[in-house]
């Protein structure tokens, strides 16, 4: 009998202590956001409904967003996030988009009228140009987010498949 009392008292005391501790020392959300952000593909495409990868990471950390809202990351990102956060692997929510092969934006320079609208839309400042002058995309910095496509009034931006150069091989 006394055993049950002691164990119950202990459980209650420890529970209360943990409750107080969680109030006093909130978990380090900054580092969790950082870790989630690390796993996201950094396309900054906003397809998840948040204005970039970091805002989406913050939403996941807060518990506002699901882990299956990132189409460019696809299954790999979902399984990585599930691993990190100890959740179940779920299928990609296709409401937010489908996973596509990697591509980069190209401006058809003859057709560009120099309206600067795409420059303002680019989340990573990968478009250069000036009012009434031709614009071009710095392909080394383009993430292929497609955010520059809708604002273009003359539809002179197209997506082209991208490839990373193959590793060089050396032999004797």
């Amino acid at each position: 009998m006394s055993g049950i009392v002691v164990v119950t008292a202990l459980a209650l005391a420890i529970g209360a202590l943990l409750g107080i501790a969680s109030k006093w020392f909130p978990s380090n959300t900054e580092s969790i956001v950082e870790k989630i952000d690390e796993l996201l593909p950094q396309t900054q495409c906003a397809q998840c409904g948040y204005p970039g990868c970091r805002p989406y990471a913050m939403a996941i950390a807060r518990g506002d967003a699901e882990i299956n809202q990132c189409p460019p990351g696809g299954e790999q990102t979902i399984s990585d996030l599930a691993n990190l956060l100890g959740r179940k692997v779920v299928a990609l929510n296709t409401e937010f988009g489908e996973q596509k092969p990697p591509a980069l934006a190209y401006i058809i320079e003859e057709d560009c009228i120099g309206c600067t609208l795409c420059i303002h839309a680019c989340p990573v400042d990968a478009i250069i140009g000036s009012a009434k002058l031709m614009h071009t995309i710095l392909i080394d910095h383009c993430t292929g987010c497609e955010l520059c496509l809708p604002p273009c009034p003359v539809d002179c931006i197209e997506m082209r498949p991208s490839a990373l150069p193959p590793a060089s091989t050396a032999t004797s």
Partner: peptide
């Protein structure tokens, strides 16, 4: 050789993601 190529691609992807992250934060 195939593994080295795959790792090379992965490294490039990671580098590109890091660049995009920094540029997004800067913007």
């Amino acid at each position: 050789q195939q593994a080295m190529q795959a790792i090379h691609q992965q490294t490039l992807q990671i580098q590109a993601a890091e660049r995009a992250k920094q540029r997004f934060a800067a913007r």
